[in-house]
């Protein structure tokens, strides 16, 4: 025997079928259609404005995963992106605010490279990048 609630749920179902026929899918065709990253999303540690850096090393000390290495003598700042947990603590504690976050996620990589930045003494072009 068909009871009332079953009849009601059947009508719900028919309504759903028409709704699904007319509506867009809940998913995206991902590689072709990408969603804009939300503002202030913690995608990755974007990088450093190396010329503003004073090599105090606070970011390296506060980093919960020990991903940052600062060398005062060499004037270098290095991040291991495979250790980084993207908590953005380093950008918050930086006294010069020279670290910044990026909203986009890190791309997949083939090799585990570290990003090393060295401050050039009195260089004309700023922001040197070399991988160690």
């Amino acid at each position: 025997m068909v009871n009332r609630s079953e009849v009601k749920s059947m009508f719900d179902m028919i309504g759903n079928i028409f709704k699904n026929l007319g509506s867009k899918p809940a998913t995206r065709m991902y590689p072709f259609e990408k969603r804009e990253a939300f503002k202030d999303a913690r995608g990755q540690l974007g990088g450093i404005d190396i010329d503003a850096c004073i090599f105090c090393g606070i970011c390296a000390r506060k980093c919960p995963s020990d991903a940052i290495v600062v060398n005062k003598a060499e004037k270098s700042w290095e991040v291991d992106r495979f250790k980084c947990v993207v908590c953005s603590v380093c950008t918050e504690v930086c006294p010069k605010k020279c670290l910044f976050m990026s909203e986009n996620y890190t791309d997949a990589a083939y090799t585990k490279e570290k990003a090393k930045h060295v401050q050039q003494p009195k260089s004309t072009d700023n922001g040197e990048q070399a991988s160690a």
């Binding site: 939300f38 503002k39 999303a41 913690r42 953005s88």
Partner: peptide, 19 residues
């Protein structure tokens, strides 16, 4: 659930480990 995850990302910056 995906809607909740989007709220999380928009407000906290990450989807799951929102710190």
């Amino acid at each position: 659930r995906e809607k909740v995850m989007d709220i999380m990302e928009e407000t906290a910056g990450s989807r799951v480990i929102i710190s």
